[in-house]
Design a protein around this nucleic acid. Structure first.
Lengths: 333, 333
DNA sequence: CCTATTGATGTAAACGCTTCCAATAGCGTT
DNA sequence: AACGCTATTGGAAGCGTTTACATCAATAGG
C-alpha cells in the first residue's frame, strides 16, 4: 500500500510520449496528434493519475481556487439564514471548472488580517465577498490585493468599485409596500434592518419610494435582523403610531417577532394589522399566520456572482447584475 | 504596480542570511541564532513576504488545507438549517493553524466523483464529513483515499470505521420523551426523520428507549425533515391515534408543520396535545406556541470534529465524542 | 595546544508541473 | 532535387520551497 502517487512522468512512460506531450494533452493544447492524445488518455486512466495542483500552481501561478469571504459581524449570514443555498449554487457553478472553493470568515480583526494575508499571498485566483459592509476595512484589503473580486449582494456606498450580483432589495420593498397600499391600508409602518447593510438601507428606500411624504419618521423603526429586535421594534411602533394598519418588516425573522408583539397587543393579523416580511425563509411558513413576504432569488444571485467572477478571471469585463424579487402572498397580508 | 510577489530569496537578501535560514525561521526549527531570527522576522515584515503555499506543498506534500465534504442528498444540511454555526466553529478552530477550509458538495454522482478525485489527488490533508449517510458510496471513497477523516455527526452503521463528533441524539430524544411522560401524558406519538440518517434513527431509538412496549407501531410515523412532511405525518398520526395527547417530532421544521396540522384539526397545543421538537433552530421561537425542543450543541460538535481531525493529522489516536443535548422548555409542552 | 563536539549557517538537490525552444519529419513547391 | 513550410514532439529550464548535507567557527576536554 501507500504506493507513491503517479506523476506525469509515469503517464509519459506508460504512453510512450514525452512529459511535454502529456502536459499538452492534459491542458488541451492544440497540435497534438490524435494517436498521442489517445495514448495519453488511456495511460492517465491506467495509472490513475491526478494532476498535482501544487506543482501546476507553482509553475503557472494560478491556484485553481477561489475564496468565499464571509464578512459576518453578527450571526447573520448574507442577511439570510439560508446560507446553504448560496453555497450550493456557488459550488455547483464552480464544479465543471474544477476550481476549489475555500471559505474564510472575516468576523473579527484577526479574521480580516488572515483573509488579507491569504489574498496578498496569491493563494486564490479570485474572491467572492458575501454580505460586505459599508466602510468595511475588509473591502479595502480585498480590493487592494489585486485579485478579481465580486460581491454577493450589493456593496453599500461604493457601487462602482466592486461588481456584484444582488437581489433587487429596493424593488422588492417597493413591491410589498405597494401591495400593502393596494390592500387599502393607509397607515403603513416599517421595521428596517441595520442601515449600514445594503439590504437594510435599500429595503427602506423602496418603502419610502412608494410612500414618499406619507412615510413619517415616526412610522419607521430600526431593527437589527433578530427576532427579539423585531418584537421590540413592533412594540415601539405601536406606541408611536397606535392607529397603524400595516407594517413592512425587513426580514422574516424580525417579522416573526413583530407577529408576537402584535399578538400580545391584541391586534389581529391581518385583520387589524397586515404584516409583510422579506426573504421568504423557512420561518415564513412556520409562523401563524404564515407570512406574506418577498422571495429573494438567492440561488440565482450566488450563481450570477460566481459567473461574474469566472468571467473576470477569464479576463472579460463585467457588469453588476440585479435580479428581480417575487412577491409571495400568504396569510399575514 | 503589479510588483512581483517577494519570495524567500528576497527575504534572505534583505536580512543578510541564506534561504535555508529564512526557511528555518519560518518553520520554527531549532538551531537558529537569535540575531538571525530577529533579522529574518524584520525582513519578512519589511518585504511583505507571504509564503507560497504551492511551493511549500510541492516540497512537503502537505497542502495546508482540509476539505469539508457535504453529502447532502436533499436540501438538508447537517440535518439542520443552521449550517453557518458549523462553518463558523470549523473555521475558527482552523484559524490559528493557518489551514484553509475548502468546501465540496457531494450531492450527486458527479459530485462524489469530484470529491473522490480531489482526495485521491492529495489536494487536502484531511476530510471533514458532514452528515454522512448509511451506505453512502462517498464514505467508502473517502476512507479509501487514505487521508485522515472525521465525521461531523454520527456515521450510521459503521461506527467503528470513522471517528466522529456528534450530539447525543438518542439521549436528547430520551430527555424530551421523558419530559413529555413526566407531564402526565400517556399517549405519546412520534414523527421521525428519515431512518437512513443517524439523527433519524437515533432519535427514534431514544423515544422507544423510554416508552418501550408502550410505543406501538401505529404511534410512530416517519417524516422527511420537511415542514410539509411534518404536517402530513401529523395528520396520519391523528388518524391512527385520535386519542394521542403528546407528540415528539424529530425536528423543529417538521414540528412547525405538525403544529399547523394540529391547529387545523382543532387540537389545542399544549392543552390537548403537547408537542416536542428537536434542534432548537430559529424556527422554534417563530411558531405559536413556541416550541419546547432539544438544543444540539452544534458549535461544539463542529469544534470537536475539527479538533479530532487536527489530532489525527498530528498523528495522534482519537476517540469519537458524543456531546450532551439540552432540553429547552417553552410553550408547546 | 590539539582534537572532538556542538551549534549555526550556507548550498544544492529535489518536489511535479508547464512551456519555450529547437529538432524532426512529412509534404507540397519551385 | 533542394527548399521552405507546418505539425508534432522531445528536451530542458525554471516556479519557490524544504531539507539533507557539508562547512565552519567556537567551545570544551584531554
Amino acid at each position: 500500500m501507500a504506493r507513491k502517487r503517479p506523476t506525469i512522468n509515469d503517464v509519459a512512460a506508460a504512453s510512450g510520449v514525452s512529459r511535454g506531450t502529456v502536459s499538452r494533452v492534459l491542458n488541451g493544447h492544440a497540435n497534438v496528434s490524435l494517436a498521442a492524445e489517445l495514448a495519453v488518455r488511456r495511460a492517465v486512466i491506467e495509472t490513475g493519475f491526478v494532476v498535482n495542483r501544487a506543482a501546476r500552481s507553482l509553475k503557472t501561478s494560478r491556484t485553481g481556487s477561489i475564496v468565499m469571504v464571509l464578512s459576518e459581524p453578527q450571526e447573520r449570514l448574507f442577511e439570510d439564514p439560508n446560507f446553504s443555498v448560496v453555497l450550493r449554487a456557488a459550488t455547483r457553478r464552480l464544479a465543471d471548472r474544477d476550481t476549489a472553493l475555500v471559505l474564510m470568515v472575516a468576523g473579527d480583526r484577526g479574521g480580516r488580517d488572515r483573509v488579507a494575508r491569504y489574498l496578498r499571498g496569491g493563494h486564490a485566483d479570485g474572491a467572492l465577498l458575501v454580505s460586505a459592509h459599508a466602510g468595511d476595512p475588509l473591502l479595502e484589503a480585498v480590493e487592494h490585493s489585486g485579485i478579481p473580486v465580486v460581491a454577493c449582494g450589493a456593496v453599500l456606498g461604493r457601487e462602482s468599485a466592486v461588481p456584484y450580483a444582488a437581489a433587487d432589495d429596493r424593488g422588492g420593498a417597493r413591491q410589498i409596500t405597494e401591495y400593502l397600499a393596494g390592500l387599502g391600508r393607509r397607515r403603513i409602518g416599517m421595521i428596517t434592518g441595520p442601515l449600514d447593510t445594503p439590504g437594510g438601507a435599500l429595503r427602506m428606500e423602496g418603502f419610502t419610494d412608494v410612500l414618499g411624504r406619507k412615510a413619517t419618521k415616526r412610522m419607521v423603526v430600526h431593527g437589527d435582523y433578530t427576532q427579539a429586535g423585531g418584537e421590540r421594534a413592533m412594540r415601539t411602533l405601536l406606541e408611536n403610531a397606535p392607529a397603524l394598519d400595516a407594517v413592512f418588516v425587513a426580514s422574516d425573522l424580525m417579522a416573526s417577532g413583530a407577529l408576537r408583539a402584535l399578538h400580545d397587543a391584541g391586534r389581529a393579523v391581518p385583520g387589524d394589522v397586515a404584516v409583510g416580511g422579506f426573504d421568504d425563509s423557512a420561518i415564513a411558513t412556520a409562523t401563524s399566520p404564515m407570512l406574506t413576504t418577498v422571495r429573494q432569488p438567492l440561488e440565482e444571485v450566488a450563481g450570477e456572482a460566481v459567473r461574474l467572477l469566472v468571467a473576470l478571471l477569464d479576463g472579460d469585463r463585467v457588469e453588476s447584475v440585479v435580479l428581480p424579487t417575487e412577491l409571495v402572498v400568504r396569510d399575514s397580508a
